[in-house]
Amino acid sequence: MSQTLSASNAPTRVSTTSPSPATDSPQAHAPRRISSATLMGEGRAIEIEHGGRVYQLRITQLNKLILTA
């Protein structure tokens, strides 16, 4: 890859800083999406530990998701 040189023969610097949160697009704050099949695998229930408590996420007989503590 070629490199652009300034008059002083030094490499040109390119800023690699990220935009500030105030200028981020709304898409940057979208929640992650994970399929239930990825979460559940072959089972119908998983346990999720959060804040020192254990929750159960399960698939009901009507194929709905329910989260209980």
Rank of each mutant, 00 (worst) to 15 (best):
S2T: 12
S2A: 15
Q3G: 08
T4H: 09
T4Q: 10
L5Q: 13
S6L: 12
S6A: 14
N9G: 04
N9D: 14
A10W: 06
P11M: 08
P11C: 07
T12M: 15
T12I: 15
R13A: 15
V14Y: 09
S15C: 15
T17P: 00
T17C: 08
S18Y: 06
S20Y: 00
S20V: 10
A22Q: 10
A22R: 10
S25K: 14
S25N: 12
P26L: 10
Q27I: 11
A28M: 07
A28L: 10
A28C: 07
H29S: 11
H29T: 13
H29R: 13
H29C: 10
R32H: 12
R32L: 12
R32V: 11
R33H: 13
R33L: 15
S35I: 12
S36Q: 05
S36G: 04
A37H: 04
L39H: 04
G41A: 00
G41C: 05
E42Y: 10
G43P: 00
A45C: 02
I46M: 04
E47R: 05
I48L: 12
I48K: 05
E49H: 04
H50F: 06
G51W: 02
G51L: 05
G51A: 02
R53C: 05
R53D: 05
Y55F: 13
R58N: 02
I59K: 01
T60C: 01
T60I: 09
Q61Y: 04
Q61P: 01
Q61F: 03
Q61R: 10
L62S: 12
L62N: 06
L62R: 08
N63C: 02
N63W: 02
I66K: 07
T68G: 03
T68M: 06
A69E: 03
